[in-house]
Design a protein around this nucleic acid. Structure first.
Length: 881
RNA sequence: GGGCGCUUAGCUCAGUUGGUAGAGCGUCAGCCUUACAAGCUGAAUGUCGCAAGUUCGAUCCUUGCAGCGCCCACCA
């Protein structure tokens, strides 16, 4: 048993216990214990290429606090850590960091090594896909080390033997197995159809990756001619550049203004295409002129309407977001005046959509641009407007709908079941379920599962190449499960040779990678070794707890629930808890792009890890928290106080050459002691109930409250008694209460303040039976056990003592006297019951007030109704030294 | 446009079967007290966002409104 140093130096102490915990494997998962005794956490794998900031510390601490509590209840904790390293954020970071680009056409160079020199702005280098992936691996490995160091410092009690990375071989295997399972079940399919497409990244994206942004645009009112008639219709659009892709004109079926036109045709200006005029439910008579053009494709409604209309598609926007070369007069670009149409289009071809918009506005504004050559096709000046436009959340230009071949996973047919399963999960806070519900109800597309990127999990699929050189998408070649993971761009399917790659009668690998959520959605299955180790899977799945941010309910929570449903028809975890965000002091969300990010390193150094954890744990689940230095200072103060109070308590035992542990078995005889232990019992019950409901914040609050009462009032009341030179029942009662209290407080604080509590524990209660010696493996305090000490205790007596002490101190303070100053007269007035209680605790009160027994008078007032009034008169004389 | 959440002391936040409004920080006034000056004691501070309703009684329940934040939605 070591003794505590005089001062608490957090950096030394953290260093000591951090390595001891790791060496002793205090947080190791024990695979031999059954599921019922295990608490299983689906840890969020942090995106390692993202910036490290206090938000990470915040939410991961919440999980750790819960894990530590569960561990102390005797549970076997399964608490892994993964790194989310695949996907676009990493690619982007690697491109900038090493100044490279992936070009799949370039050959692999085994001698190439990525270099980073921030001083030298070298030319952007094109490298092969394999080299690019190597560079991704190199950089993410560095990032992971930084995260690992932070997590250790923060004392996350993860089992580092359970570390994984979403791009590692095991994750690729599970990801690909998942895909093959979905394919077998008919839940995955591929289709060539208009897909939401980011023109910068040149990849398909999913509904979950969309965000709306307010963008300045302008309404252009354009005159169309009704075919075989002199009538004109005026159509408003913010995307005039899509005029050449116009396939129809529609108005609401009940719109009286256009009834007579349904069934007729309209002719577009500039391109002179005949397009049908039809009725469509989605046309809103209130908006614009009530009649609109359908183009392939302006928005999702265009896509929907096009699908059911069976009209031909006129694709003009290409993968790069530029207008393609098309020729008018040939299908589907039918035109009444092909030459004139082509002449107009020549001005637009090759331009980006936004440039084309400006250009076509000029063309439309030209004299004689109307179909009948009578004036301009553009009516008036374009009217500026601001409208929400869909963007890929990481992109810089609006998404376009581009027809491409993609893999999809079915979610739309399963909406009902998803909602049902969502309800089976306990959401903390509960109202977060509503967000999930709304997301599921609002789904309007299947999950687009493929991405045209490089650093990700490839599809485990090859296709036969037919004799005509075309790819046979309908008969994919699949690897057996045992071969996973595979990379179809380098691996060869059974029965083929590498030389047949891309050749007639040979094969071709699927070039795409999976959506990053395809892997992230499997974090429970990745850790349970689904399909690989059925025994282990049964032992770990479904899991107990998913912690995550509320901003990714529609992605991570949703896809994980969807996968558990599609694969095994079950929920993935029993509980999901959602942490809030960290806001900067101006209440803006902390994010890299806003430049208001605070990194955690200096906070840990300045205030200690325990203090930073304290700050995190004060915030309730789901609640956003403003970053506030002061709270760290409060945390540091609490740590110091806990340390000093512990030193005081332990010194009482050292003085008598005994130990706190030996005193636990003593007898509690004094009323003040019993009263305090009763309070302690209440606090333990409340903290336990809080933790059981995942409400760690209330556990901390209640513990902290009573701890300050302990220091300020209990210790001050019994100090003199515990200092007694002679052995006595009164003295031993105080010592036993101090021992029980210290032990309980250390344990109650242990989930929040793992370092300081371990330090004190090591000097006091380390031999607790059944523990490895770490407080974090000790048994959580048992409220019932504490209650046995305090059987007849009356907690009100403690409050009365507090009140009297407060009055005494108050009088001394306002008289500008020291707290040692003698009290000449102490008069207490109350009803019989109150005074009866006070009589049992006067000894401690008089000692702590420096008041003689003669100076005390008790006056009974039967009308006092439980109220106690206190009169204090101080001595004139200065206290003698 | 729809939904969810929030609004309590100067600041950050607690506050459930509806019953006299709480903590910490900050401010002010003091105090070396046999653990702690990185400490301790005390004091002051409120239209509980606004309005109506239910009730003997509303910070709490109901309705409406306002402000803030977030999520979602169909770009004419």
């Amino acid at each position: 048993m070591n003794t505590l140093p005089k001062k608490y130096k957090h950096s030394e102490i953290e260093e000591k216990w951090k390595s001891w915990w790791e060496a002793e494997r205090v947080y190791g998962w024990d695979p031999s214990r059954p599921k019922e005794e295990t608490f299983i956490i689906d840890t969020p794998p942090p995106t390692v290429s993202g910036s490290l900031h206090v938000g990470h510390v915040f939410s991961y601490t919440h999980t750790d606090v819960i894990a530590r509590y569960q561990r102390m209840t005797g549970k076997n904790i399964f608490y892994p850590m993964g790194w989310d390293d695949n996907g676009l954020p990493t690619e982007r970071r690697v491109q900038n960091y090493y100044r490279i680009r992936c070009n799949p056409e370039v050959a692999y160079n085994p001698d190439w090594k990525p270099t980073h020199d921030p001083k030298q702005k070298k030319e952007i280098e094109e490298v092969s896909r394999k080299n690019f992936i190597e560079a991704c691996n190199t950089l993410t490995h560095e990032d992971e080390k930084a995260f690992h160091a932070l997590w250790s410092q923060l004392a996350l009690s993860v089992d580092w033997a359970l570390e994984y990375a979403t791009i590692d071989e095991h994750c690729r295997r599970v990801s690909q197995a998942s895909f093959l399972d979905l394919l077998e079940k008919g839940e995955a399919f591929h289709a060539k159809s208009p897909t939401m497409w980011d023109t910068d990244f040149q990849s398909a994206i999913a509904q979950a990756e969309l965000e709306d942004r307010e963008v300045a645009g302008a309404y252009h009112n354009i005159r169309f001619q009704v075919a075989d008639s002199s009538e004109e219709i005026e159509i408003a659009t913010t995307r005039p550049e899509l005029l050449p892709a116009c396939i129809a004109v529609v108005a609401h079926p009940s719109d009286e203004r256009y009834q007579h036109l349904f069934g007729k045709e309209a002719i577009t200006p500039l391109f002179h295409s005949r397009v049908p005029i039809r009725a469509a439910e989605h046309a809103d008579p209130e908006k614009g002129t009530g009649i609109l053009m359908v183009c392939t494709f302006g928005d999702i409604m265009d896509v929907e309407w096009w699908k059911q209309s069976k009209l031909p598609m006129k694709q003009i926007i290409g993968r790069e977001g530029k207008l393609l070369d098309v020729s008018f007069g040939t299908e589907p670009f039918q035109s009444e005046k092909p030459e004139s149409a082509q002449e107009s289009y020549r001005e637009l071809a090759g331009l980006y959509a936004k440039q084309a918009r400006t250009k076509i506005a000029e063309l439309l504004a030209a004299p004689n641009s109307a179909v009948n050559s009578d004036g301009t096709a553009l009516v008036g000046e374009p009217t500026p407007t601001k409208a929400p436009v869909k963007f890929f959340e990481k992109g810089d230009r609006p998404v376009e709908f581009v027809p491409t071949r993609q893999w999809y996973v079915r979610v739309l047919p399963h909406k009902e079941r998803l909602l049902q399963l969502g309800k089976e999960i306990e959401w903390h806070p509960e109202y977060m379920y509503t967000r999930f519900q709304h997301w599921v109800e609002g789904l309007n597309q299947e999950w687009c599962y493929s991405r045209q990127r490089y650093f990700g999990v490839p599809f485990p699929v090859w296709y036969p190449v037919q004799e005509d050189g075309e790819t046979d998408y309908e008969n994919p070649i699949l690897p057996p499960f045992e071969d996973l993971p595979i990379d179809p761009s380098t691996d060869v399917p059974a029965g083929f040779r590498e030389e047949q790659r891309g050749q007639k009668g040979g094969f071709r690998g699927d070039p795409d990678v999976m959506d990053t959520w395809s892997t992230s959605s499997l974090t429970p299955q990745i850790m349970s070794h689904w399909k690989i180790d059925p025994e282990r899977h049964k032992q770990l799945f479904p899991m107990d707890l998913r912690p995550q941010g509320h901003d990714i309910i529609r992605t991570w929570a949703f896809t994980t629930i969807a996968k558990a449903m599609l694969h095994e028809g079950t929920i993935p975890w029993k509980h999901i808890c959602l942490s809030g965000w960290i806001l900067d002091p101006d209440r803006k969300k902390m994010s890299k792009s806003k430049g208001n990010v605070v990194t955690p390193g200096h906070l840990l150094e300045e205030y200690s890890s325990d203090a930073v954890r304290y700050w995190s744990a004060r915030a309730r689940l789901g609640t956003d928290t403003a970053f506030d230095d002061k709270v760290f200072a409060i945390g540091r103060k609490l740590v110091t106080k806990l340390f000093n109070a512990s030193r005081f308590v332990l010194s009482q035992f050292e003085r008598l050459e005994t130990t706190a542990e030996a005193s636990l078995g003593g007898t509690v005889t004094e009323e003040v002691d019993k009263a305090f232990l009763h309070k302690l019992h209440n606090t333990i019950s409340a903290a336990t109930a809080g933790f059981e409901a995942l409400d760690y914040a209330v556990a901390l609050q209640r513990t902290e409250e009573l701890f300050w009462d302990f220091c300020d009032h209990y210790v001050e009341l019994v100090k003199t008694r515990s200092y007694g030179e002679e052995q006595s029942a009164e003295r031993d009662s105080a010592l036993t209460t101090l021992a029980i209290s210290l032990k309980s407080f250390l344990q109650l604080f242990a989930p929040f303040l793992p370092y300081v509590t371990e330090e004190v524990w090591s000097a006091s209660f380390r031999t607790d039976p059944g523990s490895t010696g770490s407080i974090h493996k000790s048994r959580w305090p048992d409220a019932k056990e504490v209650a046995t000490y305090a059987k007849s205790g009356n907690p009100r007596l403690f409050d009365l003592a507090k009140q009297i002490m407060g009055e005494v101190r108050g009088t001394k303070s306002t008289s500008q006297r020291s707290l040692k100053w003698p009290v000449q007269e102490l008069q207490l007035t109350g009803d019989g019951e109150t005074l009866g209680g006070i009589r049992r605790i006067t000894g401690d009160i008089l000692r702590a007030s420096n008041c003689t027994e003669e100076a005390l008078s008790l006056k009974e007032n039967s009308d006092a109704d439980g109220q106690l009034s206190v009169r204090v008169v101080l001595a004139e004389e200065e206290p003698t030294a």
